[in-house]
Simulated scan of single mutants.
Amino acid sequence: MKTIRLLLALLLVSSVLVGQTKEFSKDYFLQKSKKQKTTAWILLGGGTAIAVGGFATFDSSWDSGSANTTDIAGVIGTVGFLTGLASIPYFISAGKNKKTAMSITFDYKPIYLSGDNLVSTKAHPTLTLRIKL
């Protein structure tokens, strides 16, 4: 009975470990950063245009006294302003992903091998990830 439990536990742990083998490369983080920055600029530009249009309509309808148009224009201006604010997290994430991509390097590191009274080096390709704390 104990062996069945042990085998079942090992099976469950190994299935979780196999599912977490995704490799991230420099190109992955650069592409992700580029997409996030594009999204951020679209949100900022669109939100600014909508906010300016909504608040301009709000101002002109305020003078004319039509309450229905004033309410709709105020809502549109507020939605545009909030859309512009929504771009800030995308700019921050894009900057973090770009820094992560720049910290990944592909390099050749020497490995020191010892032999009969001699020390020699052999270069092996390595993938280095620098994590700044």
Rank of each mutant, 00 (worst) to 15 (best):
residue 1 M to I: 10
residue 2 K to D: 09
residue 2 K to T: 06
residue 3 T to L: 13
residue 4 I to Q: 12
residue 5 R to T: 10
residue 6 L to E: 12
residue 10 L to V: 06
residue 14 S to A: 15
residue 16 V to A: 14
residue 16 V to D: 07
residue 16 V to N: 11
residue 18 V to Y: 14
residue 19 G to P: 02
residue 20 Q to S: 10
residue 20 Q to G: 07
residue 20 Q to N: 14
residue 22 K to C: 09
residue 22 K to D: 10
residue 23 E to R: 07
residue 25 S to P: 03
residue 27 D to E: 14
residue 27 D to F: 04
residue 27 D to G: 06
residue 28 Y to C: 01
residue 30 L to M: 07
residue 31 Q to N: 10
residue 32 K to N: 05
residue 33 S to C: 05
residue 35 K to G: 01
residue 35 K to M: 11
residue 35 K to Q: 14
residue 36 Q to E: 14
residue 37 K to P: 00
residue 37 K to G: 00
residue 42 I to L: 13
residue 44 L to V: 03
residue 45 G to L: 13
residue 46 G to I: 01
residue 47 G to P: 00
residue 47 G to F: 02
residue 50 I to L: 15
residue 51 A to W: 00
residue 52 V to F: 15
residue 53 G to Q: 02
residue 53 G to S: 13
residue 57 T to G: 14
residue 58 F to A: 13
residue 59 D to T: 15
residue 60 S to Y: 11
residue 61 S to P: 01
residue 62 W to N: 05
residue 63 D to S: 13
residue 63 D to H: 09
residue 64 S to W: 10
residue 65 G to V: 06
residue 67 A to K: 15
residue 68 N to P: 00
residue 69 T to P: 02
residue 70 T to W: 00
residue 71 D to G: 07
residue 71 D to C: 07
residue 78 T to K: 07
residue 78 T to C: 03
residue 79 V to S: 03
residue 80 G to W: 00
residue 81 F to S: 08
residue 82 L to N: 09
residue 82 L to Q: 11
residue 82 L to E: 13
residue 83 T to Y: 02
residue 84 G to H: 01
residue 84 G to Q: 04
residue 91 F to E: 05
residue 92 I to Q: 09
residue 92 I to M: 10
residue 93 S to D: 04
residue 93 S to G: 03
residue 96 K to W: 03
residue 96 K to M: 11
residue 97 N to E: 14
residue 97 N to Q: 10
residue 97 N to R: 02
residue 98 K to A: 07
residue 99 K to L: 09
residue 99 K to S: 08
residue 100 T to V: 08
residue 101 A to K: 02
residue 101 A to E: 02
residue 104 I to G: 01
residue 105 T to K: 15
residue 106 F to H: 12
residue 110 P to H: 08
residue 110 P to A: 10
residue 111 I to R: 12
residue 112 Y to A: 09
residue 112 Y to T: 14
residue 113 L to M: 08
residue 114 S to V: 10
residue 115 G to I: 08
residue 116 D to I: 11
residue 117 N to I: 04
residue 117 N to A: 07
residue 120 S to Y: 10
residue 122 K to F: 13
residue 126 T to K: 10
residue 127 L to I: 12
residue 128 T to G: 02
residue 128 T to S: 15
residue 129 L to V: 11
residue 130 R to E: 15
residue 130 R to I: 11
residue 131 I to Q: 08
residue 131 I to D: 02
residue 131 I to L: 12
residue 132 K to E: 15
residue 133 L to W: 11
